[in-house]
Amino acid sequence: MSGPSLRTRLAARGIDGTTLLVLPGVAVMAALFVYPFLYGIVDSITPREGAWYANYARFFSDRFQYGTIAATLWLALPVTILNLALAVPIAFRVRLMSRQRLLTTILVLPVTLGTVFVADGLLTFLGPQGWFNRSLILFGILESPVKLTNNYWGVFASLLITGFPFAFLLTLSYVTGIDPAIEQAAATLGASPRQRFVRVFLPLLVPGLAVTFCLAFVQAFAVFPSAVLLGAPAGATRVISIAAYQAAFEQYDHSMGTAIAIVMGVVELLIVVAVLGLRSLFYRGPAGGTKG
């Protein structure tokens, strides 16, 4: 007496010919992502000389190196918070617009053009004779041009120009996902605009905002070309990606470069996990009204 065949039993668990179609994708990721990643971890603990942790010890004992973590966070966190703080109110207004397409199309431009192009443009635009300084002098806000390139503020501006549209478009997609009937119900029951925002929208938005924060932060934290082109790559904007790149491709010490890259990933994931962890303290549930 025999039970169902192996094929039937597997199919009952969801494994059949169609499931096997997942294999090519998994194979590509295994070869190009998982294997190099594991290789990198091993590579980072087999330094040229010294104990297995020598790379990490070197990184965390050299102020020029470990200072890059603070420099990166000092750029990425304020920019991300500012981007989100701007994105939420603007998304709330744009949500009510009937023709959003022109605005969203303009805002998607810097995201698609990328940081290299934006850095090139900002070098002219923010320069001492650029339109930005000229306008501020014309309106009497400034006496003489301020230096906005090759320092912290240049990189800040580039992260704002590429990061705000990104945060905004993500927030907009979450905000439009909230059923307007919920707001109308709150208004009918006498909630003021402030109350509607704080008591109704914000709790519904928090999960989405947490994800937006993480994705925007990931982008800002990985800042690389604009920190070189618009910043002071040996000084205030020597971010961690510059340190990793220099170790791996300028000093040809891939072991050290990988170690810094892993430190970079760990620091970033710690913040992402912390933010997503905070999210679980808030309401999570449907925001789409009765239709589900």
Binding site: Y39, G40, S241, A248, G265, L269
Partner: peptide, 24 residues
């Protein structure tokens, strides 16, 4: 686990997996 595998590259900074992959 497989879905997570496809999500990770979008959450990790490109240089973190880029440098080991470039080395390989």
């Amino acid at each position: 686990a497989i879905v997570l595998l496809f999500l990770l590259p979008l959450l990790i900074p490109p240089l973190t997996y880029g440098i080991p992959l470039a080395t390989v």
